[in-house]
Amino acid sequence: MKTILIKTLQILFAFGLAAFIIWWSIHELTAQDKADIQLAFTNANYIYVIPVIILLFISNCLRAGRWQQIIAPLGAKPPFKDLLFGLMLGYAANQFIPRAGELLRCTVIAKKHPVTVAQLVGTVIIERSLDLLCFAILAIIVFFIEYTQIHAYAIEIFQGVALKWQNNSSPLVILGYLCIFMLLIAAYRFLKKRYSKKQFFLFKIFRGIAEGLASIKHVPNKPLFIIQTVLLWVVYILATWLGCFAFTETAHLSIGTAMVLLVSGTLGIIIAPGGLGAYPYAIQKTLVLYSITKNIGLAFGWLLWMVQFLFTITFGIIAFIALNSKTKAHAQHKHHTAKNT
Rank of each mutant, 00 (worst) to 15 (best):
I71R: 08
I255D: 05
A272M: 05
C106W: 06
L202A: 14
F158E: 01
G265P: 01
A118T: 07
Y46P: 00
V234F: 15
K334F: 09
Y177A: 08
I145M: 11
G86L: 04
A14E: 04
A210L: 13
L133I: 02
L130Q: 03
L138S: 05
H330M: 12
F143H: 00
L213F: 08
L9I: 15
P280S: 07
V260G: 06
M1G: 10
V288R: 10
L213W: 04
I227H: 00
I97N: 05
T257Q: 10
W302S: 01
K77P: 10
A64E: 08
N340V: 15
D131S: 05
I292H: 06
G243Q: 02
L261E: 02
A92F: 13
L287D: 02
T341G: 10
G65P: 12
V124Q: 02
F135T: 02
T3M: 12
A239N: 01
F201D: 00
A214M: 14
P223R: 10
T8H: 08
I313P: 03
A272K: 00
S129E: 06
S254D: 06
I269W: 02
G75N: 13
S264F: 15
S215N: 08
P73I: 08
K81D: 11
S291F: 13
Y236K: 04
C61S: 05
D82N: 09
S129N: 07
I237N: 10
L202C: 12
C106T: 03
F80E: 02
E28V: 14
K222R: 11
A31N: 09
A214N: 12
S254V: 12
L242E: 03
F225E: 07
I185L: 14
F247T: 00
V235F: 08
I270R: 05
L184K: 07
G265C: 12
W241N: 06
S170P: 05
Q332C: 08
G208Y: 09
K81G: 04
A76G: 03
I141Q: 03
V49F: 13
V260T: 13
E28Y: 15
N221F: 15
Q228I: 09
G256L: 06
F143A: 09
E249C: 02
V307G: 00
T327C: 02
G101I: 13
I317P: 02
V49K: 01
I227G: 00
L262I: 09
W241S: 01
R189L: 14
T8L: 14
Q32W: 15
K198V: 14
A44S: 09
F320Q: 01
N45T: 03
L133W: 10
A93I: 11
F225A: 03
G176A: 15
T148N: 12
A14C: 12
I150N: 04
T123W: 08
H336K: 14
F309D: 01
N221V: 11
Q284E: 13
Y153C: 03
K164L: 14
Q68L: 08
I205F: 15
